[in-house]
Design a protein around this nucleic acid. Structure first.
Lengths: 117, 117
DNA sequence: CGATAATGATACGGCCCCGTAACGATCGGG
DNA sequence: CCCGATCGTTACGGGGCCGTATCATTATCG
């Protein structure tokens, strides 16, 4: 079930998708923001600031600021946890799901174009 | 010859490698810098500032600054073209080759761990 | 030789992100 | 009921990257 990929293929894939990302004006996410976004959309909810911070090995302000900027882009939203009002629950959005899906399409399309070497 | 990868696998791979990159203190390259680095190491030399700029669809100062910062990290080096002293030839370095190889290992290792879904 | 073009670097103002430290709000145990 | 612990946010100073405009150097062509 493992995905077999040669190092040279991995590099070509990584480069090509990064070229796409650089030229795509809409995707302006940093590496950290991308890691946060994908964690929110791939791992089971609920997601909290503290949980994401420890999951990524970064400080809490990093998460707060990333949620701020990604929130402005409509990729995520926040809501107070009513059972424990100290917590903030990070929620997915339609725009965020579309962005993630777009990334998936990009990677799969570029993988499909890879040669054997 | 094409690499078959499902969208869900692509996302898991992308997320896991990004998590690795975030937690690896040494790799602090932006998306643009990564695209530049991989282009230098995967495409045939010679590489020039102008060539990379048009290849990536960015302005020349972006390339100059990226070469400055990556040069400080020892990932690339620059040399004047003696036949046309207006040009600068970007050269690979041992450290840069190791960094690229490290990235390739990262991607291939994470791909190998992917499940079927 | 002189004017023009081309190349890469630099200056500038602006924006975003970082890490540390502190803060207000909320919860929970004694 | 209160005091400490926890949660997320904000303040602060610093640094990096951005795009535009401009610059010095070098090549080219009439």
């Amino acid at each position: 079930m493992a995905l077999e990929i040669k190092p040279s293929q991995a590099l070509k894939l990584w480069r090509q998708v990064h070229l796409d990302l650089v030229q795509d004006a809409h995707s302006d996410l940093s590496v950290r923001q991308t890691a946060i976004l994908l964690t929110i959309y791939l791992e089971l909810p609920p997601h909290t600031v503290r949980g994401l911070a420890s999951r990524l090995g970064v400080t809490k302000p990093v998460i707060t600021r990333a949620l701020d900027s990604m929130g402005k882009l409509g990729l995520v939203s926040r809501r107070r946890d009513e059972t424990d009002k100290r917590n903030v629950v990070i929620q997915r959005t339609v725009a965020g799901a579309l962005a993630v899906e777009h990334l998936a399409d990009l990677v799969t399309a570029r993988a499909r174009e890879l040669g054997p070497a």
